[in-house]
Deep mutational scan, measured.
Amino acid sequence: EMEYEEITLERGNSGLGFSIAGGTDNPHIGDDPSIFITKIIPGGAAAQDGRLRVNDSILFVNEVDVREVTHSAAVEALKEAGSIVRLYVMRRKP
């Protein structure tokens, strides 16, 4: 069973403070093209906020749908998102 969360982060000097993997051209798990959080960087915006978790998958960055995009398109969406970034994420319920 999945749960969904909308997380708004303010981009810090060091960016959003997380790493991603995945994409249609580089699936992270099997042939699932989802964009997954692979690392939360200590002291970064995501770590300070505390809600984003490793293995969360990002569905939307602001209004941009990143469910079926290449890795570089997801990176671009995050880069272009401005200083306030709304992430709509999905994760397995614990």
Rank of each mutant, 00 (worst) to 15 (best):
10 E>V: 06
38 T>I: 05
69 V>C: 07
38 T>Q: 07
54 V>L: 09
66 V>D: 00
32 D>V: 13
26 N>W: 12
12 G>F: 09
12 G>L: 09
48 Q>V: 09
69 V>M: 09
37 I>D: 00
34 S>K: 14
78 L>C: 07
79 K>T: 01
87 L>G: 00
88 Y>M: 14
78 L>D: 00
4 Y>L: 01
20 I>S: 06
25 D>C: 09
66 V>A: 11
62 N>H: 11
91 R>S: 12
34 S>V: 10
36 F>C: 07
65 D>C: 12
68 E>V: 06
80 E>P: 04
11 R>W: 05
83 S>P: 05
61 V>A: 11
15 G>Y: 09
42 P>S: 11
63 E>V: 09
41 I>Y: 14
36 F>W: 06
29 I>T: 13
48 Q>R: 09
36 F>N: 15
73 A>C: 10
75 V>Q: 04
22 G>W: 06
23 G>W: 02
53 R>W: 03
67 R>L: 03
62 N>R: 03
77 A>N: 15
18 F>G: 00
77 A>W: 10
55 N>Q: 10
26 N>A: 05
12 G>Q: 08
6 E>T: 12
14 S>H: 08
69 V>T: 05
4 Y>F: 03
82 G>D: 06
18 F>L: 04
31 D>C: 08
62 N>F: 01
72 S>I: 13
31 D>R: 07
37 I>P: 02
91 R>F: 14
34 S>C: 07
42 P>E: 10
29 I>R: 10
30 G>C: 11
54 V>E: 06
74 A>T: 14
80 E>V: 14
67 R>F: 03
23 G>N: 05
73 A>P: 01
19 S>E: 05
26 N>L: 11
13 N>I: 13
87 L>E: 00
45 A>E: 04
57 S>L: 07
78 L>R: 00
79 K>W: 01
62 N>G: 09
58 I>R: 00
88 Y>N: 15
39 K>I: 05
1 E>M: 02
52 L>R: 00
92 R>N: 14
58 I>W: 00
26 N>Y: 13
35 I>H: 15
57 S>D: 06
86 R>E: 02
17 G>H: 13
13 N>E: 10
65 D>E: 08
93 K>C: 06
66 V>L: 11
8 T>Q: 02
88 Y>Q: 07
33 P>R: 13
88 Y>R: 11
